[in-house]
């Protein structure tokens, strides 16, 4: 504006220059987007393409997404020659149980920490914060020790029970419950509803967004969980998908690289999370955003 009133004669040239620059910026922007779009998505394209190839074809043309000839042999062998169906079943069982457990227990604890006044609440919350800082990988040996000691090693209970609650989930729920106006609950309590009743039928329905977020995070987390299954079970009948997949790669297949088979198995293991990601994308994206935006 200031420029315009200052020297009107120079304005058209400058505007043109700016338009050209905008165009160049835009072109560069799209070029960058497309380039990185390829970098981040093409590996999945390669994965799908090569899962449908024959082994020699995959070795000769690894970059090509088009199978020639197209074959389902890899997938047939996944179901006929490996324990994939078993791993799938185990993964489903573990994921469903862990997700239900986390959503229920984390909400209960989150509600108590947000709303109920009880002795030791402050200390407990501090403990939750502290527990979130404990890195998972240093728990490998500790978890094995306790499962072994409790006789839960090599059992479904060992796979599921230690994952039934998580500190981060408690934190998410606590933060959310604190954002709900307290008046509704007070009305319910005055009407004589018990604490649990108030929680269950008044507060929880209002917490739907947080519950969806927690469900998704728990599902994704337990579906992909690998180190825990590594130290909690040894029996191949109890392998979950990531564990079975890792086992395939480390050579249980026998001779040959068998990349089409491995890529196909990895693909099948990725599909559930991919579907959830596409359907509930805004929950994923919003979560990650919310961690660092303004308070």
């Amino acid at each position: 504006m200031a420029v315009l009133t200052d020297r009107p004669a120079a304005a058209p040239a400058r505007r043109q220059q700016r338009a050209a620059r905008t165009l160049a910026t835009r072109f560069l922007g799209y070029a960058t987007l497309v380039f990185f779009g390829l970098v981040f998505l093409y590996p999945f394209v390669i994965q799908i393409g090569n899962a449908l190839k024959t082994e020699p074809d995959a070795a000769a043309n690894p970059l090509s997404p088009f199978p020639d000839p197209l074959t389902l042999a890899g997938f047939e062998r996944i179901f006929a020659g490996t324990n994939f169906p078993l791993w799938l079943g185990n993964s489903l069982l573990v994921t469903v149980l862990v997700t239900i457990g986390r959503v229920f227990f984390d909400s209960l604890a989150g509600y108590a920490l947000a709303r109920l006044r009880f002795r030791g609440r402050g200390g407990l919350f501090a403990a939750v914060i502290a527990v979130m800082a404990v890195p998972g990988v240093v728990l490998l040996i500790p978890k094995f020790l306790v499962l072994n000691q409790l006789g839960l090693y090599n059992s479904y209970a060992g796979l599921v029970v230690p994952l039934l609650a998580d500190a981060a989930g408690v934190f998410i729920m606590k933060q959310f419950f604190e954002s709900i106006p307290v008046s509704v609950e007070e009305a319910a309590r005055i009407d004589g509803a018990s604490i649990f009743r108030t929680f269950w039928s008044v507060v929880l329905p209002m917490a739907k967004p947080a519950l969806i977020t927690l469900t998704i995070l728990s599902f994704q987390g337990s579906w992909n969980e690998f180190p825990h299954s590594l130290v909690s079970v040894q029996d191949p009948d109890l392998f979950t998908l990531p564990r079975g997949l890792a086992d395939l790669v480390s050579g249980s297949l026998g001779k040959g690289t068998q990349y089409p088979l491995k890529l196909g198995a990895a693909l099948l293991a990725t599909i559930p999370v991919a579907i959830i990601f596409v359907v509930f994308q805004r929950y994923f994206v919003r979560d990650a955003n919310d961690g660092s935006d303004k308070g």
């Binding site: 981040f40 590996p43 992909n224 491995k262 198995a265 990895a266 990725t270 994308q281």
Partner: peptide, 23 residues
């Protein structure tokens, strides 16, 4: 594109390692 860049973060580390072994 935002989703495309973010998608690898939500997939299984084991499954994605298998893909990179091939790459």
């Amino acid at each position: 594109f935002r989703s495309a860049f973010y998608f690898p973060s939500v997939t299984s580390s084991v499954a994605i390692s298998v893909v990179f072994l091939f790459l």
